[in-house]
């Protein structure tokens, strides 16, 4: 018997992992248990990343395999993927179009089991507010690389407060120059130094 799906994913063996998913589904395996195995694989990837054995490129590759696998499993799932850890609204703030970091965080949060509403780049404060109202999400993740993004982050947090949502919604920040001082300037709750930390913050705030 070969390696488990979790192991194949953790070792980034893309072709073998996808072949195993297809084979298992044909053999009548429970699709939800396959998703669960993929999550275990991602947990192992996360562990290796924290331990300094894996780097961001490996995180990106693992998330890609996860995504491909879930796409294959998707049609076999009835009643969702079991991803019910909560909703997160996320985007790069107004005036800024940098999305490398945002996309990585978005993907990893999805792998972690969150429902992520990624609004893209150059997102107006009002669009964030609308999405928070619509989804009832309790976490807002804002990204930006330019210093002008600090002002947009501040504006966005103010708009969330204005809409009366600040009590319910935690706001986390990310992006190259973002630090504790920017958190304070924008009136946010915390920032993530890297993508893994963004996931930890989500888990902390959404109680996973």
């Amino acid at each position: 018997m070969g390696d488990s799906l979790a192991v194949l994913l953790a070792e980034l063996r893309e072709d073998e992992a996808l072949a195993l998913v297809r084979g298992s589904l044909e053999g009548g395996a429970d699709p939800l248990s396959l998703v669960e195995e993929l999550r275990q694989g991602m947990t192992e990837v996360g562990r290796r990343f924290e331990a300094g054995e894996y780097f961001l490129s490996e995180l990106i590759m693992s998330a890609e395999i996860f995504k491909e696998a879930v796409e294959i499993i998707g049609p076999h799932l009835q009643g969702g993927s079991g991803a019910d850890k909560g909703s997160i609204v996320l985007g790069t703030v107004k005036g800024d179009i940098h999305d490398i970091g945002k996309n990585i965080v978005s993907t990893l949060l999805r792998c972690e089991g969150y429902e992520v509403h990624d609004l893209g780049v150059d997102v107006e404060p009002a669009a964030f507010v609308r999405k928070l109202e619509e989804t009832g999400a309790r976490l807002l993740a804002l990204s930006g690389l330019l210093t002008l993004a600090f002002d947009s982050m501040k504006e966005t947090v103010a708009a969330v407060a204005e809409a009366g949502l600040r009590e319910r919604v935690r706001v986390i920040l990310g992006g190259g120059p973002v630090n504790e001082r920017v958190v304070e300037y924008a009136g946010a709750d915390a920032f993530g130094e890297d993508a893994a930390q963004a996931v930890r913050l989500a888990n902390r705030y959404l109680g996973a």
Binding site: L12, E14, S57, I60, M61, E64, I100, N103, I104
Partner: peptide, 11 residues
């Protein structure tokens, strides 16, 4: 682009 380039390094 960044993401595709990273995947290319593996694939």
């Amino acid at each position: 682009s960044f993401n595709d380039f990273i995947l290319d390094l593996f694939r």
